[in-house]
């Protein structure tokens, strides 16, 4: 028994632990707070370790870990938190920012002046299901199929959430860039 256990321990160390950064980054954006994110990461990794025998070697370990993370978050951390402002994604029209800037900055150079912290703050203002989809796609580079598995919604829903999340975020960052004087508002 000790051999079987140390084998699976080794397998967990080699296959799961290297994804700790991914788990932590997603936890940070879900929980919105460093200490909750650390606790959530810790708990996710421990749960993953305890159910390591359920993981099928060679399958997608990132998706498996992130599914555990998501369930842990929903069951234990979601409530009460996150009362800050959220962006209204229903008001979003397609490619508004490009249409506004196409004559003055068609390459989107103004984005380059916006710092990391501001981008993360804006992501944190997205409603949860949109934020989660955008984080899995744009920060963690997962495919639509992987995001669909993790978030338990059809691929069509992933696509529409991702579209609206990206466009809503772009609008928030554009308004911020105008406010900071990185780009001039064009009246159209």
């Amino acid at each position: 028994m000790s051999t079987a256990s140390s084998d699976s321990r080794r397998a967990f160390d080699t296959e799961a632990l290297p994804h700790l950064d991914t788990v932590y980054r997603v936890a940070l954006r879900l929980a919105g707070d460093q200490s909750d994110a650390e606790e959530l990461t810790q708990e996710t990794m421990l749960k993953a370790y305890r159910s390591w025998h359920q993981y099928k070697s060679g399958t997608n370990v990132t998706a498996w870990l992130l599914t555990i993370l998501r369930h842990t978050f929903i069951n234990q951390y979601r409530k009460a938190k996150r009362t800050g402002p959220t962006v209204d994604v229903d008001q979003i029209e397609s490619y508004t920012v490009f249409h506004q800037v196409q004559e003055v900055d068609p390459e989107g150079r103004f984005f380059e002046q916006i710092v990391d912290e501001e981008v993360l703050r804006a992501i944190d203002e997205l409603p949860e299901e949109f934020r989660e989809t955008l984080v899995l796609s744009d920060i963690e580079q997962l495919s639509y199929a992987e995001i669909s598995d993790i978030t338990a919604v059809p691929i069509g829903t992933v696509k529409s959430r991702l579209f609206r999340a990206r466009q809503a975020l772009q609008k928030v960052l554009y308004d911020y860039a105008i406010e900071m004087g990185y780009i001039k508002r064009v009246e159209r």
Binding site: L20, Q42, E107, G108, I123, R166
Partner: peptide, 27 residues
Amino acid sequence: EFEQAYLAFLRARTRARAAPDHLRRQV
């Protein structure tokens, strides 16, 4: 091209964070 630049910018601004050392140790 504009949207491609936007996605590249998002990746560049958000990817750098690693789990802190004390958390790695705790896990």
